[in-house]
């Protein structure tokens, strides 16, 4: 038996455990239930809200996370890396309480925010912030790994050819790391879509305003399990489309470059 086949054989049980629950979820849901869930105004509102908030959270994450990941990739910063990794380890509900203790009325920044006329809890901004925080490690760490492959020599060559620091970075580092960046962004986006615990505590749960797809699933679970399952299948479909779609985009760009 070849090494590859042996590896697949050894990894197969894990793959089955990962895939089977999704199969179970989808198998219990017929097209009629899916259509009914999609037609429900509550589900559509939750889907629209989820797509808008996660798109914004991912855009903010890419804007801030890319420079951070670049800086991390150029040196050794174990403590900063640990800080970035922290949301992976913390239960999301704890993260929700932490966000309240920071941005809530009585939080660290509560008084200055109130003075500025800003109130985050129970708002859409809170939904985005919760998604941003829990998804951040997935993007920053993937981007950092992608940037690690960019050599200082290549940057230096671009500089000697007359490019400025930013010009050299966009000409050399960005294209080389792009597949990794896109893959990281897709993963972060999908994680943001599934965000539940931090949102529940920090942003509350109001239909049409802060009730995202995962919160809608939780609410539906209390009324009707079939409906909850149908909305969950919808969430899985959107997340898979994101993961696969963006990955295809990344590999195509990789092939073109």
């Amino acid at each position: 038996m070849s090494g590859r086949r042996l590896a697949l054989l050894a990894g197969l049980p894990l793959l089955v455990v990962l895939v089977l629950p999704v199969v179970g979820l989808v198998a219990g849901t017929g097209p009629a239930e899916l259509r009914a869930a999609l037609a429900a105004p509550d589900t559509r509102a939750a889907l629209g809200l989820s797509l808008r908030t996660t798109a914004l959270a991912t855009a903010l994450l890419v804007a801030g996370g890319t420079p951070l990941a670049w800086w991390l990739s150029r040196g050794r910063h174990p403590r900063v890396v640990a800080a970035v990794q922290l949301p992976v380890v913390l239960p999301p509900a704890v993260m929700g309480v932490a966000l309240l203790e920071t941005f809530g009325r009585h939080g660290l920044l509560g008084a200055p925010l109130a003075a500025a006329g800003l109130s985050l809890p129970f708002s859409r901004a809170a939904v985005v912030l919760a998604q941003l925080v829990v998804a951040a490690p997935l993007y920053v760490l993937t981007a950092q790994a992608a940037f690690r492959g960019v050599s200082e020599d290549a940057l230096l060559v671009a500089r000697t050819l007359g490019r400025g620091p930013l010009g050299a970075w966009t000409a050399v580092a960005l294209p080389a790391a792009l597949p990794g960046l896109v893959g990281g962004a897709a993963l972060a986006w999908a994680r943001a879509l599934g965000e539940f615990g931090a949102t529940l505590l920090f942003a509350g749960n109001l239909p049409g305003r802060t009730r995202t797809l995962p919160l809608a699933i939780y609410a539906a679970m209390e009324r009707d399990l079939a409906e909850a399952r149908a909305v969950a299948v919808l969430l899985v479909a959107v997340a898979l489309a994101l993961l696969v779609g963006l990955r295809l985009l990344a590999t195509r760009e990789d092939a073109d470059g």
């Binding site: 309240l100 809530g104 009325r105 009585h106 809890p121 129970f122 529940l200 505590l201 509350g204 749960n205 109001l206 239909p207 802060t210 009730r211 939780y218 609410a219 209390e222």
Partner: peptide
């Protein structure tokens, strides 16, 4: 003025006990 519809009564009580509601 309803800002949230929570999924269990303890979550409701926690929001008002923390002063967020």
């Amino acid at each position: 003025h309803v800002v949230s519809r929570e999924s269990n009564v303890r979550l409701v009580a926690a929001k008002v006990a923390m002063g967020e509601a």
